[in-house]
Write a protein that binds this DNA or RNA. Structure first.
Length: 830
RNA sequence: GCCGGAGUGGUGGAAUUGGUAGACACCAGGGACUUAAAAUCCCUUGGAUCGCAAGGUCCGUGCCGGUUCGAGUCCGGCCUCCGGCACCA
C-alpha cells in the first residue's frame, strides 16, 4: 500500500467531526417540519438543569436519544428531537448569594456553557425549538397554566402543616423531602403551619393510577412506584360518637371486619379534631404539652421511632356505633393528621401498631378474628397482633363471616344503618407549589381586601420577575420587599391590592415543556394545537429513574388536566418511557464536583473523539444499567474503529449498484453467500437491538460482521460495496460523524441520514445449512451439518448414525426422539 | 418490615418464546514483525481431569429442592446485593 493511500485512511476524528457538524448545520438536517407527515416520531430527552456544564450522565442520556432519533430519521420518519433548559430553581439563588451574581446571569452563563458542550457532541437536537423555563416568553405560559388550574378550582390556598427547610427558608413538596431531609441541602425538615398554594392533583388520583395500565411500554418498576406513591386503598369510614357531646368523629379503616375489636381511638396530635374535643383542666394541659413535644420532633426522629409509640389519654370516651361500647380516646403520635380523617379506630388484637400501644399503656385487647375455624388465638400467647384475614368471632351477628366476604358484610351493614360509608383513600397529597424564593415563576395572583385572591388578567401576562437586591432568604419571598412589584390594582374592582409574593415550584415549569416544543415561539398562546396534535404523544421519553414519583407524575397530571380543558388530545403524554442507568466513577461513587471525580465529556471527546466516546459508552453496558466509567472502556471500540471499520472505505471498489436490491443466493459462491447471509442477519439484529436501545449488542453484531467480511475473497464488486455501504448505514446512528465521512468517501452525495435504513433480505437471514446439536439424554454428545428445514425423520436417522452418538445408544432402548427444527436433536435411551 | 429488580469466567457483559452457556470486548499469557520499544497481526484463555496428539470425560449460571427428554430461563424454599416505600389505619 502506498503512503498516500495510508494517509487517507487515517482516522482524523477532529477534522471529520467539525467538518460534518458544520455541513449538517448548514443543511439544517435536524430541523423538524412544522407539522409532521403521518409517520412521525417524537423523541424526547429530559431537559437539563443548567448547573455548570453537562456531565457524563447527561452525555449518556442524550446519545441514547440521539441514536434513536437518527435511526428513526433513516427509517423515513419525521423526527422531533428538541432540547431545553429547566432553568428556574434554588441553586441559581445560592450561587447568587455566594458569588454576588444575579441568578439570571449565573443561569444564562451555565446555559451557554452547556449548550456549547452539547453542540460539540453533535447531538441531533433541533435547536430552533430550544426553550428556557426562566425566560418570560416561557413562564408567561407557566403562569397561564396556573390560571387555568385556578379557574377550575384546581389551584387553591390552604393553611396546613407543611415541610419547611430552615436552611433554604422555604416550604417543600412531599416529593422534595428525602429521609426527612431537604433533598437539596440535606437539612432536617421542620413542620410549620402556613398558608400555601396547592394543585388539586388528588382529584386525578384514580386517573393517574388507572392510566398506568394503558402504558405497556413503561417500565414496571416506575409504574409500581407511582401506584404505591398514590397509594389507593378501599375501606370504610365509620362515625364514632364522642360520649359527652354526641358529636361524630369519622375514622377510616380498611379492616371493617375487626370493628368489634376496637378498644380505643387515637387522634393525631396536630389534627384539628383535638380542638373539637374541648378539653379542659389537667387533660388540656397534658395534651397541649404533648402536641408541642411532638411538633418539635423532626421528620427523621419520627421516622426512626417507627415501632415506638407514645401518646396521652384525653380523659374522653367515644362510642363504637356497632356495639355501643365505650372506648378511651387518646392522642397519639403514630396517627397521621394528613391521612384519612386524622383519627383511627384501634384494634390491638389485629393491628401491630395498636398492639404495641395497648401493651404500653395497658389498654384492653379483644380478639375478634381467628385464623380459621380450627385455630383459636389466645391473648396470653400473643406477642404481636394477628393481622391476616380470618373468621370473625365475638362480633355479634357477623360471627363466622370470613375474610373479604366479612368486610363486604360489615360495609353493607354500616351503609344500611347509616353509621358509615364506603370510602377510597390515597396516600397522595395535594401538590404544594408555592415557594418563598426569588428564582421562579411568579404566582399570577392578586390579593384584594374586597375580592380575595384574584387571578391576573391573561392579557397582562407575564407577571415579570422584578430585580431585587437581596436574595438572602428570610422566610418570606424576596419579592415581598419590592413595593413596586407588590402594590397593584385589583383586576376586578380596581381597588388597592397586593400581588402574591411567592413563586412556583420548578416542577410546575417542567410539567408542560414537552408541549411548548411543538410551537416554541408562539406569543398568543402556549402552543397551537394544530402544530402540537400531530406530534403527540411522545414516542420515547428517556431520563433518569429519579423522577419516577415526581416529574413523571406531575407531567401526567398536567396532560390529563389539559385534556379536560381541551388543550391536548391524549390521556397520556408519553407512550414509552426509558430509564437509563447512572454513570459513576471507577470506584462506583457518584460523580460530583466536591469529590473531584467528575469526568467531563468535553475532555473525553477532545482526547478520543466524539464517536469513539459514544461507542465506548454504548458498548460497555446495556443502557438501563449503571456504568462505572473509566477511559479503559474505550480501548476495544477504538481499536475496532481505527484499525477495522474505518479502513473499510479503502476496500470500496466504486461499483454501480442498487442498495434497495437483493442478491440471489443461488448466484453466489459459497463464501460470498455466507457473507451475504451474515450481512442480513446483522441488519436484522441491529434493527431489533435499536428498537430496544440495546446498543452494546448492536456494536457486537457489527464487529462480527466486519470479522467475517474479507473483501479479498469477494469476487463481485457490487456485493463488496453493498456490504460496506450497509455496514456504514448500520453504524450511522451510533457513530454519526464517522459514518457520514465513510459514506461520502464511498461516493455518496447526500447525507447517510437521508438514506434509507437497510431492510434484511428474508431469504438470507438463515444459512441454508445448519449445525444441529445432538443430545443423548439431554447431554450434548455431538453435532452435525444438515440442510435447513430437513425432514424430522431424516435428521433423526442421521443423528442415530453418528459414531459418537452410537457409543451412548448401543444396546439401549430408545424411548423418545425429540427434534427442535434446525437446532437440536435429543435421543432419550434407557 | 413491605413491595420491586438482580446474582453468569479474572473484568464489562451475551444467550428475544425452556433447546449447543460464556457471543462481543477488556485483562492476562504465548507467538510474529522490530536492533529495541510502541503500534499492529495471529494464537490460547470457565474449572478440574485424561491424552504425545487429534480429541475425550466430569463439574459449572448465588444455595437447596422440584417440574421437564432438556432449566441461566419455569415452580417452591433460602442467602446476598441494589432500588423504592417506610407508622397510610
Amino acid at each position: 500500500m502506498d503512503n498516500e493511500k495510508k494517509q487517507t485512511l487515517k482516522y482524523n476524528f477532529k477534522e471529520i467531526e467539525s467538518k460534518w457538524q458544520k455541513i449538517w448545520d448548514e443543511q439544517q438536517l435536524y430541523k423538524a417540519p412544522e407539522k409532521p407527515g403521518k409517520d412521525k416520531y417524537y423523541m424526547l430527552v429530559m431537559f437539563a438543569y443548567p448547573s455548570g456544564d453537562i456531565h457524563m450522565g447527561h452525555f449518556r442520556n442524550y446519545i441514547l436519544g440521539d441514536a434513536t432519533a437518527r435511526y428513526q430519521m433513516m427509517k423515513g420518519r419525521d423526527v422531533l428531537h428538541p432540547f431545553g433548559w429547566d432553568a428556574f430553581g434554588l441553586p441559581a439563588e445560592r450561587a447568587a448569594i455566594q458569588r454576588g451574581l444575579h441568578p439570571a446571569e449565573w443561569t444564562y452563563k451555565n446555559i451557554e456553557t452547556s449548550r456549547k458542550t452539547l453542540q460539540t457532541t453533535g447531538i441531533s437536537f433541533d435547536w430552533s425549538r430550544e426553550v428556557m423555563s426562566c425566560s418570560p416568553d416561557y413562564y408567561k405560559w407557566t403562569q397561564w397554566m396556573f390560571i387555568q388550574l385556578f379557574k377550575k378550582g384546581l389551584a387553591y390556598q390552604k393553611t396546613g402543616w407543611v415541610n419547611w427547610c430552615p436552611e433554604d427558608k422555604t416550604v417543600l413538596a412531599n416529593e422534595q423531602v428525602v429521609d426527612g431531609e431537604c433533598e437539596r441541602c440535606h437539612t432536617k425538615v421542620e413542620k410549620k403551619e402556613l398558608k400555601q398554594w396547592y394543585f388539586r392533583i388528588t382529584d386525578y388520583a384514580d386517573r393517574l393510577i388507572d392510566g398506568l395500565d394503558m402504558l405497556p411500554k413503561w417500565p414496571d418498576n416506575v409504574k409500581t412506584m407511582q401506584k404505591e406513591w398514590i397509594g389507593r386503598s378501599y375501606g370504610l369510614e365509620v362515625d364514632f360518637i364522642i360520649k359527652e357531646t354526641g358529636e361524630k368523629i369519622p375514622i377510616f379503616t380498611t379492616r371493617p371486619d375487626t370493628i368489634y375489636g376496637v378498644t380505643f381511638m387515637a387522634i393525631a396530635p396536630e389534627s384539628p379534631l383535638v380542638e373539637k374535643l374541648n378539653l379542659v383542666g389537667e387533660y388540656r394541659e397534658k395534651v397541649e404539652k404533648y402536641k408541642k413535644e411532638v411538633l418539635m420532633r423532626s421528620e427523621i426522629d419520627r421516622a426512626a421511632a417507627v415501632g415506638e409509640k407514645d401518646g396521652v389519654f384525653t380523659g374522653k370516651y367515644a362510642i363504637n356505633p356497632f356495639n355501643g361500647e365505650e372506648i378511651q380516646l387518646w392522642v397519639a403520635d403514630y396517627v397521621l393528621a394528613g391521612y384519612g380523617t386524622g383519627a383511627v379506630m384501634a384494634v390491638p388484637a389485629h393491628d401491630s401498631r395498636d398492639f404495641l400501644f395497648a401493651k404500653k399503656y395497658d389498654i384492653p385487647i379483644k380478639i375478634v378474628i381467628h385464623p380459621d375455624g380450627n385455630t383459636v388465638l389466645k391473648l396470653d400467647e400473643m406477642d404481636d397482633a394477628y393481622t391476616d384475614y380470618g373468621v370473625m368471632v365475638n362480633s355479634a351477628h357477623f360471627d363466622g363471616a370470613v375474610g373479604e366476604d366479612a368486610i363486604r358484610k360489615v360495609n353493607d351493614y354500616a351503609e344500611e344503618k347509616g353509621i358509615g360509608r364506603k370510602k377510597v383513600n390515597y396516600k397522595l397529597r395535594d401538590w404544594l407549589i408555592s415557594r418563598q424564593r426569588y428564582w421562579g415563576a411568579p404566582i399570577p395572583i392578586i390579593h384584594c381586601p374586597k375580592c380575595g385572591a384574584v387571578s391576573v388578567t391573561e392579557s397582562d401576562l407575564p407577571v415579570l420577575l422584578p430585580d431585587v437586591e437581596n436574595y438572602i432568604p428570610k422566610g418570606r419571598s424576596p419579592l415581598a420587599d419590592v413595593p413596586e412589584y407588590m402594590n397593584v390594582k385589583c383586576p376586578e374592582c380596581g381597588g388597592k391590592a397586593q400581588r402574591d409574593a411567592d413563586t412556583m415550584d420548578t416542577f410546575v415549569c417542567s410539567s408542560w415543556y414537552y408541549l411548548r416544543y411543538a410551537d416554541p415561539k408562539n406569543d398568543k398562546k402556549p402552543y397551537d394545537r394544530d402544530k402540537l396534535d400531530p406530534w403527540m404523544p411522545i414516542d420515547k421519553y428517556i431520563g433518569g429513574i429519579t423522577h419516577a414519583t415526581g416529574h413523571l407524575i406531575y407531567f401526567r397530571f398536567f396532560q390529563k388536566f389539559l385534556k379536560d380543558i381541551g388543550w391536548v388530545k391524549d390521556e397520556e403524554p408519553a407512550t414509552e418511557l426509558f430509564n437509563l442507568g447512572m454513570v459513576m466513577d471507577a470506584k462506583g461513587e457518584v460523580m460530583s464536583k466536591s469529590k473531584g471525580n467528575v469526568v467531563s465529556p468535553i475532555g473525553l471527546m477532545d482526547r478520543r473523539g466524539i464517536d469513539i466516546s459514544r461507542l465506548g459508552m454504548f458498548f460497555t453496558a446495556p443502557a438501563e444499567k449503571e456504568v462505572l466509567w473509566t477511559d479503559d472502556v474505550l480501548v476495544g471500540v477504538e481499536k475496532f474503529i481505527k484499525n477495522r471499520f474505518y479502513p473499510l472505505t479503502g476496500k470500496f471498489r466504486g461499483a454501480d449498484l442498487d442498495l434497495k436490491s437483493c442478491f440471489k443466493l443461488s448466484e453466489l459462491d459459497d463464501y460470498s453467500k455466507n457473507t451475504y447471509i451474515k450481512l442480513n442477519q446483522t441488519i436484522k439484529r441491529v434493527g431489533e437491538d435499536f428498537d430496544r436501545l440495546q446498543f452494546n449488542t448492536a456494536i457486537s453484531a457489527l464487529m462480527e460482521l466486519e470479522h467475517d467480511f474479507k473483501p479479498d475473497k469477494i469476487k463481485s464488486d457490487a456485493l463488496n460495496d453493498y456490504i460496506i455501504l450497509k455496514a456504514i448505514q448500520l453504524m450511522a446512528p451510533m457513530a454519526p460523524h464517522l459514518a457520514e465521512e465513510m459514506w461520502h468517501r464511498c461516493g455518496m452525495n447526500d447525507s447517510v441520514f437521508r438514506s434509507e435504513w437497510p431492510e434484511f433480505d428474508p431469504d438470507a437471514v438463515k444459512f441454508d445449512t445448519v449445525t444441529i446439536a445432538i443430545q443423548v439424554n439431554g447431554k450434548l454428545r455431538s453435532e452435525m451439518e444438515m440442510a435447513r428445514d430437513s425432514a424430522k425423520d431424516d435428521v433423526i436417522s442421521t443423528a442415530l448414525e453418528d459414531s459418537k452418538v452410537k457409543t451412548y445408544t448401543d444396546g439401549k432402548e430408545i424411548i423418545k426422539r425429540i427434534y427442535i427444527a434446525n437446532r437440536l436433536v435429543n435421543i432419550v435411551v434407557k
